[in-house]
Every structure is written in structure tokens, then in C-alpha cells.
Design a protein around this nucleic acid. Structure first.
Length: 444
RNA sequence: CGGGGACUGGCCUAAUGGUAAGGUGCUUGGUUUGGGACCAAGAGAUUGGCGGUUCGAGUCCGCCGUCCCCGACCA
């Protein structure tokens, strides 16, 4: 893609310093724009990031055999009354609700247990239909008490929610395990430094819940990690212990706990039969007796992921996208627009043809501005056509996540600074293809 | 909802109660091209809204709105 084929506008002036680095960088880089409290525009390039997240999540869901569908966002009160959650959500003031022309009441769905349970009851009548996991990736609405930190806590956001339906407890636990493994894979592939913690089930209800937390100083949640065993827990689960003088690990009773902050990326619950019983939703078992579904539910904050990774992965110059989420693998930059643009177009075209998704910075700007933008926008690779090309047809390649390359001139200062100093086009292609095809998307 | 703060061209900021200023970005022309370069010209604002005090309000007062930060809740 050429620069002008998409909206890429960066702000030279820094915005409010009271906001988190991720919020600040995504605004400065033009990945999102605010419209109201907790409501954001996803810009074209911001959407490219989110599509990458969505594709990773979709692949992860496929490994579990889960089936994708789409549930309505506008949901009738009558359905929510079946579980008594209409009351609950309105009382806590977190539901956006409205009435239609006939004065029937509706909610903009913050989650979808009721609808999916109804769907299951209609479509999974016997034990032969089980187990099944359904999932969707749709906008969700919550009138948050306090929206904050950009799209980390929005009032409109994209959530992946999945629901499993099982014949008994052990089957439910099996589905839970499948999802747990898929989540671990997804967050690893996204490039997160994350931990899995045991958590409180909150308003969703049920038991056996686990949260996946991205470690970040700007995180809203406090985690305690036992230094003695592998136990990691959300602070909420320590509540009764906090009131005592010294908190201890519930697993090994050790008191040496490390406190960290985290951003909740995903949360999985074993709902048991809470919803199926309330909604009288069940199946015929092999004995010909009606039984209630054993359920699990599994959420991932999709829109949140794009910002959470930036909270973790940034430096003075700007964003550092992991390869797996980057809108572009790299940017092709002619150092001198007059001299090198034709070559740059040529290189760009060949990389595209080799299946490498790169951006061409064909703007008639000074090299400094192009590099500053490349660093702010965080493309994993910067591919420069300059002196080395003039001399011996070599491209200069910079890796965004390596911090100590010489910013003034492209010169190799020490072994660790610029391991990929100069490459021929073929060498570069081979290298990039290898990186892209790495299943865990670890940067090479 | 409790506590704090803010609101001035797209963005960042200035203006003892006295002509709304500068930077950046944008447009045009020129120059320049290995780190946001330089020169010139230009467009862009009823200072969040309403009311009050005053000869005079961006500035003081009141009400309202919006947004941000800390807390309770959550993907």
C-alpha cells in the first residue's frame, strides 16, 4: 500500500500527559479518535490492527471446534427477565436500554448468555448434539461507571464471546480446558507478556474462572503472584485475606507475594447449570430424562487487545507493533525522494508480489520526518533505499524493536545494534517470509 | 456516584479586566533531501453554552454541558 492509499496522519504535538502511553500513542499515530467518553472511531489503520487480532482469534477458536454465529445486539427485556438480570444490570446502571414504538423495552447487549441459551435450547435437543461451543465477535455495550484509558475501557467495544454446552460437569471442564489452551495460544501469538490468574466470577456467576492478564503498569487490576509456587491470583480473590495483616498464598500459604498490575485480556468461566436452570434449557439424556446443560462462557476483549499491546510495547519513539498485529510488516523508505523513489517503488512492488505486506512511504518529505513517522507508527521493519543501494545494491533494514541502532546515520556501531545492516532484496525477502511464517510470530 | 482538574483555529499552548497571540498541521510558490530543514504568501476562532457584574469579560461570579485523572465495577 502506498502512503496515500490510506489515512496515515501523525500528530507532532504530544497530547495530554495524564493519559496512558498506549492511549497517547494510538491517538498521535492516528489509530483512533475519540468521539465521546468511551466511544472511539477506529481509523482505517486502526482497523487493520483489529482485523489482525480478529483473524488470530478466529484461528484460535477453530482449534477448539467452536462454531461461529452472530447474536443480536438489540435484545428484548423479556429474555433478560428469565434470568432476572434485567433488574440487576439496570440497578447497577451499566446497561444501555431503550424502548421501541410499542413501548417494549430493549437492551444493547453487554453480554449474551440469555440469547445463546435460548438458541441452544432450540437447536441442541439431545445428548447427541452435545458438546457444542458457539462463539461470536460483535460490538458490546456497557454504560461504564467510568470509561477510561482509551479503548481499554470503552462503552462500546468489540468482544469475542463463546459459550459451551455440555452434558455434564466433566464435559464442561473439558470444553473449559480446550478454551484455556486456545487462549494461551492466542495471547502468545499476539505477542503478549501475560499471566493466567484465578479470579472472582463477578456478575456473570458460576465458578472455576480464570483471567488472562497482560502485565502492564497502566493495568487496572492488581495481581498477586506467589514467589514460592506457581499460584497467581487477582487481588479480588484475596479479599478475605487482605483484611488480615499478612496476605498469604491460598495454595501454599507462603506470604512472599509479588504485586503486579495487569490488563484483563480474557476471562473464562465455568457457569455450571446456572443459566440453563433459570431458563429451563436442557436436552434429553441417554436415559430419556431431561437434563440441564452444563455451560461455560469465554470472553476476549478484542478491541482492547490492540491498545493493551501498545501499553506493553512502546518506547520513546513510539509504538512497537509485534509482527502478528502490525498493519504492515514494514515500510519502504526512499532516503532521498528525488533519487530513490523509482527504486523504492520497484522494491515495494517486488516485496508485495512475494506476499510481504509493506507500506511505501512515497511522500516528498525529508528522511527525518519519514523515519520519525515510521518509528511512531511502529512498523516492525524499516527498509531504506539510500547510499548502500547506490554503492552495491543493498537495502538497509532496521528492526523497530531493537532500540540501540544509531539514529543519526545508518552505521553499524556494535554487533547487537544492527544485525541486519544491509541485505540484498532476495536476502530480505527470504528473511521476512521466514519471520511471517513463524507460527508464534516471534520476531527473529 | 464520591474526590480532584480542565475546556482558546484540526493538534499543542499564550494572553496585569482593555485590538484574541504563537507554534504545529493544512494550501500555494520557491529552495532543500541520511533524522520532524529553510524562505515567502495564504486559509483557518462568534475563546464549550446560557446568564450576571462592568464603560469594557477568554480573564471575575452563577448555572448548565462536556472531557480527563484517582476510587468502587468490568472484556
Amino acid at each position: 500500500m502506498k502512503y496515500n492509499d490510506i489515512i496515515l496522519r501523525t500528530q507532532r504535538n504530544d497530547t495530554d500527559s495524564a493519559i496512558s502511553p498506549g492511549t497517547r500513542l494510538l491517538i498521535r499515530g492516528g489509530f483512533m479518535e475519540q468521539i465521546a467518553s468511551g466511544i472511539w472511531i477506529t481509523t482505517p489503520v486502526g482497523l487493520m490492527v483489529r482485523r489482525n487480532v480478529e483473524n488470530l482469534v478466529r484461528k484460535g477458536m477453530q482449534t477448539t471446534g467452536a462454531i461461529e454465529l452472530e447474536l443480536p445486539i438489540l435484545q428484548p427485556k423479556t429474555l433478560w427477565d428469565e434470568t432476572d438480570r434485567w433488574q440487576k444490570y439496570l440497578k447497577e446502571n451499566i446497561a444501555f436500554h431503550l424502548t421501541d414504538r410499542k413501548d417494549n423495552e430493549f437492551m444493547l447487549a453487554p453480554t449474551a448468555e440469555e440469547v445463546i441459551t435460548r438458541f441452544a435450547a432450540n437447536n441442541l435437543p439431545t445428548y447427541r448434539d452435545l458438546p457444542k461451543i458457539f462463539w461470536q465477535m460483535t460490538p458490546k455495550f456497557r454504560d461504564e461507571l467510568r470509561p477510561r484509558q482509551g479503548i481499554i475501557r470503552g462503552r462500546e467495544f468489540i468482544m469475542k464471546d463463546a459459550y459451551s454446552f455440555n452434558i455434564d460437569e466433566s464435559s464442561m471442564a473439558h470444553s473449559f480446558d480446550l478454551m484455556e489452551k486456545a487462549y494461551q495460544q492466542i495471547f502468545t501469538q499476539c505477542g503478549f507478556d501475560f499471566v493466567q490468574v484465578t479470579a472472582d466470577s463477578g456478575t456473570i456467576g458460576g465458578s472455576g474462572s480464570a483471567e488472562f492478564m497482560a502485565i502492564s503498569d497502566t493495568g487496572e487490576d492488581v495481581l498477586w503472584c506467589c514467589q514460592n509456587c506457581d499460584y497467581k491470583g487477582n487481588q479480588e480473590t484475596f479479599h478475605n485475606l487482605v483484611e488480615n495483616a499478612t496476605p498469604e498464598c491460598p495454595k501454599c500459604k507462603n506470604t512472599n507475594l509479588e504485586e503486579k498490575r495487569g490488563i484483563e485480556l480474557g476471562h473464562i468461566f465455568q457457569l455450571q447449570q446456572t443459566y440453563s436452570k433459570l431458563m429451563n434449557a436442557g436436552f434429553m439424556n441417554s436415559d430419556g430424562i431431561k437434563s440441564f446443560y452444563w455451560m461455560g462462557c469465554y470472553g476476549i476483549g478484542i478491541s482492547r487487545i490492540a491498545q493493551a499491546i501498545v501499553e506493553q510495547s512502546n518506547d520513546e519513539q513510539g509504538i512497537i507493533w509485534p509482527l502478528s498485529l502490525a498493519p504492515f510488516t514494514g515500510v519502504v523508505i526512499p532516503v532521498n525522494t528525488d533519487k530513490h523513489l523509482d527504486t523504492a517503488i520497484n522494491i515495494y512492488t517486488q516485496l508485495q508480489q512475494a506476499g510481504i505486506n509493506v507500506l511505501l512511504d512515497d511522500r516528498p518529505k525529508h528522511i527525518g520526518e519519514k523515519l520519525t513517522d515510521a518509528e511512531l507508527l511502529g512498523w516492525p521493519f524499516q527498509i531504506l533505499i539510500g547510499k548502500n543501494w547506490d554503492q552495491d545494491k543493498k537495502l538497509e533494514v532496521r528492526q523497530r524493536w531493537k532500540k540501540n541502532y544509531d539514529r543519526e546515520m545508518f552505521t553499524q556501531k556494535d554487533e547487537n545494534s544492527t544485525p541486519l545492516a544491509t541485505l540484498t532484496l532476495t536476502e530480505l525477502q527470504n528473511y521476512l517470509v521466514k519471520c511471517i511464517n513463524n507460527p508464534n510470530n516471534q520476531l527473529c
